[in-house]
């Protein structure tokens, strides 16, 4: 195997089974409590372009059957994910089971991704979006299942247009995309059941 790459490949989880169970649990918790910022408590060694929670989520969720749409063109990220997850990379957003977004300013519109079909709404894309900061102190108002009354979420770098498009896409329920915002080791989830008002 020719592996003379510029950056040496980083190892993945130290304890694959236990670490991925822990991350999955945190993620399920975040999905059950839309908008609440949670920690994944895992820092797998990873390329610097990947935030710890993003790397942990990829190692937990991706495998050879989940095509990934990758926004960054950094070879080290693709090499790392290809090695540890074995996931195919797809340039077609509509084909992706997961999308990893590393720049919110240039990210594609919500409806670029696969929202699933009425018979199989689970075949949609899950968006993992790395952001510069997350806060529950202010921001857009979120409501819906799993939220008592309302919760506020401020996501740095996400435009009002994006939020409006996201809310508009809710009309297609049960189709739609699920989103996880990632900031360092923290995550906040927006399942497709969550309503957004700016």
């Amino acid at each position: 195997m020719d592996t003379a790459t510029a950056t040496p490949l980083a190892p993945g989880f130290e304890q694959r089974v236990f670490d991925s169970i822990k991350v999955f649990r945190a993620l399920a918790d975040a999905m059950a409590h839309p908008g609440e910022i949670r920690r994944v408590n895992a820092r797998p060694p990873a390329p610097t372009q990947l935030m710890p929670a993003a790397a942990a989520m990829c190692l937990t969720l991706l495998d050879f059957e989940t095509p990934l749409w990758l926004q960054t063109s950094h070879a080290s990220v693709a090499d790392y994910l290809r090695f540890h997850c074995g996931c195919p990379m797809t340039p077609e957003a509509t084909q992706a089971s997961f999308a990893l977004i590393t720049n919110t300013l240039t990210m594609p519109a919500v409806n670029t991704f696969n929202a699933g079909e009425p018979e199989y709404p689970d075949r949609s894309t899950t968006l993992m979006i790395q952001v510069e900061s997350l806060s529950n102190a202010s921001g857009v108002r979120l409501s819906g299942p799993g939220v008592r009354d309302a919760i506020y979420l401020d996501v740095a770098g996400v435009s009002a247009t994006y939020w409006r498009e996201l809310q508009a896409s809710r009309a297609a329920f049960p189709c739609g995309v699920d989103i996880v915002f990632i900031w360092g080791e923290r995550i906040a989830a927006l399942p497709r059941t969550t309503r957004v008002s700016c």
């Binding site: 195997m1 003379a4 040496p8 490949l9």
Partner: peptide
């Protein structure tokens, strides 16, 4: 003469 650790066994 390159970086340490570039040989990977699979």
């Amino acid at each position: 003469g390159g970086a340490v650790g570039s040989t990977i066994g699979v």
